[in-house]
Simulated scan of single mutants.
Amino acid sequence: MEQASNQAWRLLGVPRAGGVLVISDHASNRVPDGIDLGIDPFCMTQHVAIDIGVAGVASRMVESGGADAAWLAHVSRLVCDVNREEDAPGAVPETSDGILIPGNALDAKGRDNRLALYHRPYHTALAETLAGHEPGLILSLHSFTPALSARPEEARPWHIGVLYNEDDRAPRLALPWLGQIDGLCVGDQKPYSGRQLNYTMNRHAEARGRLYLGVEVRQDLIGDATGQAEWAERLSALCAYLLEQTR
């Protein structure tokens, strides 16, 4: 199913003009050869390193036809977070949820090299893909941890959060659609606000007038194959609804 890849990204399926493209900026926990983050390997299995479950959901959406293609980051967010501005500290994070990352204490040249290897190729190739196959809808797919280690007192009861910045065309439709599902706890700009953490969509969707929906699914709901299949089906149905309502 993988159509193309490089060190910064993977493309599953075949993008189609007018179709659905899933974008997952934090789909991988891969640390390339030659990079030593200097942290406990266990951390690489946790939310600080990867959006748990999103690669499985995205691949199932493509396999089932619920999405035409999925654009997935091919490097851990701890190596380079492509959903941050280049000059943001979090683009090459020195700490995440209270965990120090000594391998990212780089000088200016080392930091720029990291960005040149991963951040810039990711966005350059994504821009080319979008321009060549203008999607009808982009689904920006993330997952979130039920509790941050640094702020355990903050409850995160939502099953899914809908995130957006200025363009709320898709969220206005998605929120009531999700709200009709029995037992589903839906967050509007929860657990994060898309007005603060929305770099990839700001650059490739909002700046270009492309319709998109940002979602965060709670990671414990998509941590296994059963949950991934369930949410792939649900999000595929939501994408179909959004396309129908906005054409």
Rank of each mutant, 00 (worst) to 15 (best):
A8W: 04
V14T: 11
G19C: 09
G19K: 04
A27H: 00
R30T: 07
G34M: 12
L37R: 01
M44I: 01
T45P: 07
Q46L: 13
V48N: 00
I50L: 11
I50P: 00
S64E: 09
R77E: 10
C80E: 14
G90F: 08
A91N: 06
V92I: 10
P93Q: 13
P93N: 08
E94N: 05
T95P: 01
I99M: 08
I99N: 03
L100I: 14
N104Q: 08
A105T: 04
L106Q: 06
D107G: 15
A108M: 13
R114I: 09
A116V: 12
R120D: 13
P121H: 12
Y122P: 01
A127D: 09
T129Y: 01
H133I: 06
E134D: 14
L137H: 12
I138T: 12
T145F: 07
P146F: 05
E153I: 01
E154K: 09
A155F: 03
W158I: 01
W158A: 04
H159V: 09
N165F: 01
D168R: 13
A170L: 05
P176N: 13
P176D: 10
T200V: 14
M201T: 15
L211Q: 11
Y212G: 14
G214F: 09
Q219L: 03
D220Q: 02
A225L: 08
T226H: 05
G227A: 14
A229D: 04
A232I: 02
C239I: 12
E244C: 14
Q245T: 06
R247L: 11
